[in-house]
């Protein structure tokens, strides 16, 4: 889909592929669903750090909200890797709905998530092989050599969340000269096309 018609609303969407639909007439709903998933995951990290920093819980018992009832969601490397992969794929398939500066921020979020996903792949690999790097008792990622896991993944999620919301903000409220966004269902105040 050319960038100049990204995210345009039309009545010909029955002929569109699903990829064109989620970046066109369904872009708003696609981003709503994706944002809800990202916020839910992000909120779990915020809850976990609240438990550690403010409530003084021991780290192994600080499992966010869902992890209190279902502990394996925190301990499963496969689930963490799966989420990181789904997030990476979503960044990629939803990218063509963005243009201009919002596209730049979206792709910054994608590349940070790419590295985050590599780190989770390393952890998942060690869990599968039952063999940890550097003789560690638990799976270890590269950055974990110098940064504790809780803080590291709070940082990774912040580093992905921040450019992602900036991209969405510039998509909803396009900057001057980025009129390609204006016809999108995501635009907060969609402009009428000039006659």
């Amino acid at each position: 889909m050319p960038a100049t018609v990204a995210c345009s609303i039309g009545d010909t969407h029955r002929k569109m592929s699903w990829l064109e639909l989620i970046n066109g007439p369904w872009h708003k709903y696609s981003l709503w669903v994706y944002t809800a998933i990202v916020l839910a995951h992000w909120a779990e990290h915020l809850a976990q750090t609240t438990q550690i920093y403010l409530l003084g819980w021991p780290i192994p018992e600080s499992r966010g909200v869902v992890g209190l009832w279902i502990p394996w969601v925190v301990t499963s490397e496969a689930l963490h890797y799966g989420y990181a992969f789904v997030m990476l794929v979503a960044f990629w398939i939803l990218r063509t709905g963005f243009v201009g500066r919002s596209r730049t921020w979206w792709m910054i979020a994608f590349w940070i998530q790419f590295w985050h996903h590599i780190e989770h792949a390393l952890l998942q690999g060690q869990a599968l092989l039952q063999m940890n790097l550097f003789g560690s008792p638990v799976p270890l990622s590269i950055a974990q050599l110098v940064i504790p896991r809780v803080e590291l993944h709070l940082f990774y999620n912040a580093a992905v969340f921040i450019p992602m919301v900036i991209a969405m903000f510039y998509h909803m409220f396009p900057l001057p000269g980025e009129e390609a966004h204006h016809g999108c269902s995501c635009a907060w105040t969609p402009r009428r096309a000039s006659a």
Partner: peptide, 26 residues
Amino acid sequence: GARFVLALSGLGAVGCGVLLWSTRQP
């Protein structure tokens, strides 16, 4: 290590807020 990434995250949050609120209304 923890303080380094926490500082980066905090600065990122401040920077993001400044960027969003400095954008003019369309």
